[in-house]
Design a protein around this nucleic acid. Structure first.
Lengths: 338, 338
DNA sequence: TACTTTTGGTTAATCGATTAAACAAATATA
DNA sequence: TATATTTGTTTAATCGATTAACCAAAAGTA
């Protein structure tokens, strides 16, 4: 059953022409007669010819593969980004290799090595939380292939970036909470060293100041933003002498953790404390009460990142610079803040 | 900045030896002296040599790539399977290419074509719900590379399969519900044409009969098992003259939909109706009440599927047969059924 | 000493597709 | 008619790593 694959040579032999002619015929070269092309295509179909990707990639120096690095695929945001990215890239003849860093810097470096080893024509990445050292990413650039960052980016790399406006998103949230009558708003944010979380924090602080609300240190907490840490941090906030009347959490997962604790303690949401998350994960609409959140336009981000990559193909020298594509986010108001 | 990659030739020139010697040195060939090996490795490191995967794959006829096809990566089950599969395969020098079918037969066929085109050394797949026509999968087999199925499999393909015992899982669930005092148990199952769902249905029916419980037709429903369909089907069950006192849903997502409706209608779970899901998705423990579910041992499944694949490498002829690895599942009892 | 074996390489072919360069035949142009 | 151009194809080199076959020198053996 283990038959050999059909090669150009097999077709050439059947037709009594050279493999070069066959290759050109299949690639619609202008110098091949229509008659020959048709004959070649017919035989190719009959023999079920499948081009050998390895051979052509080796010869052309292009693999038609794009590497993708994400923290995890099991969040809705990333899986939606992937889906839309795939659609754009497949149309252009590219295939995606997905890798997960699991938020680990070490795994991320491994992934980069793997992708470079596979000779991908470009890398699209969202960085792990842990990642501070950028030398591995510099390695991509010095390989001469384009690097596109999305969601979790880093200015210092001076490459293209696609994401939402985190700073403005924070403003939208505070604006909304103020309209709901909140006077003391806390923020469970991510680590400041990660740019997007820093921006959310800056947005929070500026919006708070703009509305002349209290911005006590105790109201601003840095967190790993896991569900567990969300639980821990809300407990800290609840133990304050002067409790907040609203909490803006920079991740839906941590927001869910907070909500669990609030529910367990019988604290009514939104009556006693209003809650806002970030990311618009599907479960935000499923839990009780449903959680107000920020939609990050994952579809758009996926598409734009893919298109940005495609802008670099067939340039022989890749010359990148910091080029930010910032989308407006959307606030999805649900029960937890009404 | 766009420097060329280091090749074997570059190393050979530096040391004044042949590229063959360099290749053998790097591959620890017995016929190369330790002295030469060390010299080669030193220079390789200095020049930051990275082997050209395409060239070696082309020459060796092995890509050291494994293709993975899953319905979606954004469920915890699949992303956990992937993670563990990756661990085993990476250790053996293999890399994974992940593709999603989005439950579409057409996309699944595309994925198979893509993976074969990339010359993967094997394919590990969980089939889309839609898939009935197996000819595309036969294509994999006739390509002479191993095919391993997991979770969603199909006996007729006569290949290896790794999964849990769906039939027994149904028995465990019914057993548990009977112990909790339930007398009228409904089942919102998947489509019978998908083997695993058919097995769950058979298990449900047999267990019901075993306990002499009513098995009215109206208590057994086939569903697409999405969250939305879960909502729709529970409404159907609630509108029965003779309502069930327990519902076993063959997917956590559909179970969640059912729970939402029950909560909205003020029907107390578990007091009035007990609910059991399937899959042990993280949210089952997060919602109120938490949902009793079946854990599918995703880690084990990922590992075993990977190891099964590895069992075929370096066999020059792949000879597969129906070979089922069935794991016992675990019932995780939570509030929704206590 | 004369022959065999081992050691440590080298040479050249190969994987399959692509492509620059060459070339013969057909067609156009002066 | 003689020359130039176009058309359609072939030849041969190439991408980079691997490997079968070969070979010279060193070491072992009778």
């Amino acid at each position: 059953m283990n038959k050999k694959r059909t090669t150009l040579k097999d077709i050439a032999i059947v037709l009594g022409i050279s493999t070069a002619a066959v290759s050109k015929a299949l690639n619609d070269d202008a110098r091949i007669s229509v008659k020959t092309k048709n004959a070649v295509k017919k035989v190719a179909k009959e023999l079920d010819y499948q081009p050998n990707h390895l051979a052509s990639a080796l010869r052309k120096g292009k693999s038609k593969l794009v590497g993708l690095i994400v923290p995890r695929t099991n969040s809705n945001f990333f899986s939606s980004v992937v889906e839309n990215m795939e659609e754009v890239l497949n149309k252009a003849g590219y295939n995606i290799i997905i890798t997960q860093s699991n938020e680990s810097f070490e795994k991320e470096c491994d992934n980069i090595d793997t992708l470079l080893y596979l000779q991908v024509d470009g890398i699209i990445a969202s960085m792990a939380n842990e990642t501070v050292d950028l030398s591995y990413y510099e390695k991509i650039k010095s390989n001469g292939i384009p690097l596109i960052l999305f969601d979790r980016g880093e200015n210092d790399l001076n490459v293209d970036y696609v994401g939402i406006n985190d700073y403005d998103s924070s403003h939208m949230i505070i604006e909304h909470l103020v309209k709901q009558g909140c006077k003391r708003i806390a923020h469970i944010g991510g680590y400041r060293r990660t740019r997007i979380f820093n921006n959310r924090i800056r947005g929070y602080i500026d919006a708070i100041k703009k509305h002349d609300l209290p911005h006590d240190d105790e109201l601003l907490i840095e967190s790993s933003l896991t569900l567990e840490d969300g639980r821990k941090q809300i407990e800290k906030l609840l133990s304050l002498k002067n409790r907040p009347d609203a909490v803006y959490v920079a991740s839906d997962y941590a927001a869910l953790g907070a909500l669990q604790v609030l529910n367990e303690m019988g604290i009514k949401v939104p009556e006693e404390i209003k809650l806002v998350g970030f990311g618009n994960e599907p479960f935000t609409s499923l839990v009780t009460p449903s959680i107000t959140s920020i939609d990050q336009h994952s579809k758009q981000i996926g598409k734009l990142a893919a298109e940005t990559f495609l802008g670099y193909v067939d340039k022989d020298v890749v010359e990148q610079s910091l080029n930010k594509l910032i989308l407006d986010s959307a606030l999805i108001v649900r029960d937890s803040s009404k």
